[in-house]
Nucleic acid binder design. Structure first.
Length: 332
DNA sequence: CTTCGAATAT
DNA sequence: TATATTCGAA
């Protein structure tokens, strides 16, 4: 290949909680003459990105099943820095792939990765740049001839219609969020999850959730409906783990087993181990937001901030509001 | 009376 | 499929 055109020195950041696979990746990427930084921990990786945003060209991130922290990284990174992000997973069912691609992933690769695939990842950096320039010139109708931007990507929708009443990344009113019927966006779902988690799973009933969420014009029925679906989802996923997780008790699977056990008593799916915690409920309570505003104290007890959160913060920015939450069902 | 959630409807 | 509405139970 032409030396002059080969993007050697491309700075790639790899995140994977499996350190041995991290080594494999590093070795492969170095063979491609990329510059490699590896992180095993999502939070450390994010704080690195925040400190070195100009020095990261591309991110390769494991899905981090079941917490799916990568989804958060994806949203954060694509919205704030526009760094192309490639997701990798050993499981590549269509629904999962679709979810990541629609949330802005540049590619979704199935483990184990071959060097041939890694040799080509640089193209995502240029795709992204070209796409951005293209967008600047004629922001009219560019119907994306790029194969990886098929579905409505958030950045496209975010700028257009809909100004969501939000404050500090927190949805406080759904009037603008709903066309004919309420759409559960990522952010709205986050607030829902946060509310469910802050109550016990047993105490999480529609009215209390509604109360904690503090979203105007959201009804109990809407929350109830969403809660119903949420619980269905939980049942399905724990059931799924029963199936393909061998009942062996190898210590490596302890976290999966923990998942199984907890789902019955606790909704862990979205709050496990550093995955998006909505710790900041700062509420601007504008006008008629009813008299629920006095319960702040109770809410603050949920302010667990695990090790080394450092300067890294989940700031959902404008991204993700228009993205409806995708339930994680298996498509079999 | 209110609130729950499964079932059903759209 | 995702969200809304219904309705019998608690």
């Amino acid at each position: 290949m032409d030396q002059a055109l080969w993007p050697s020195g491309l700075r790639v950041l790899v995140i994977d909680n499996n350190s041995s696979y991290l080594s494999v990746m590093e070795e492969l990427l170095i063979k491609c003459s990329y510059k490699v930084t590896t992180y095993k921990n999502v939070r450390e990786a994010m704080s690195f990105i925040y400190g070195n945003q100009q020095t990261v060209d591309l991110i390769i991130c494991d899905v981090f099943f079941p917490t799916e922290d990568s989804l958060l990284i994806l949203q954060e990174v694509t919205s704030k820095f526009g760094i192309p992000t490639v997701i990798m997973s050993s499981n590549g069912d269509t629904a999962t792939v679709m979810k990541y691609i629609t949330n802005g992933a540049s590619d979704f690769l199935i483990k184990p990765l071959r060097i041939e695939e890694l040799k080509n990842i640089w193209q995502h950096v240029f795709r992204k740049q070209i796409g951005a320039e293209h967008r600047k010139c004629n922001n009219a109708e560019h119907v994306d001839q790029l194969p990886y931007r098929t579905m409505g990507i958030t950045e496209a929708t975010a700028t257009l219609d809909s100004e969501i009443r939000e404050n500090n990344g927190t949805v406080t009113d759904i009037r603008d969020l709903r066309k004919s019927r309420l759409s559960w966006t990522m952010q709205l779902h986050r607030q829902f999850i946060a509310a469910v988690n802050s109550l016990g799973s047993d105490k999480a009933v529609p009215n209390k959730i509604l109360e904690i969420m503090k979203v105007k014009h959201l009804t109990r029925e809407q929350v109830a409906s969403h809660l119903q679906k949420y619980r269905l989802h939980q049942r399905n996923s724990s059931q799924r783990l029963h199936k393909d997780g061998a009942p062996s008790s190898s210590s490596h699977e302890s976290s999966i087993l923990r998942t199984q056990l907890n789902t019955s008593s606790n909704s862990l799916y979205f709050d496990q181990d550093g995955c998006m915690e909505i710790t900041d409920y700062s509420l601007p309570m504008d006008d008629l937001s009813s008299g629920l505003d006095c319960m702040l104290g109770e809410r603050e007890r949920n302010n667990y901030s695990p090790e080394g959160f450092q300067n890294f913060r989940w700031d959902p920015d404008k991204q993700g509001y228009e993205t409806t939450y995708l339930w994680n069902f298996e498509a079999e």
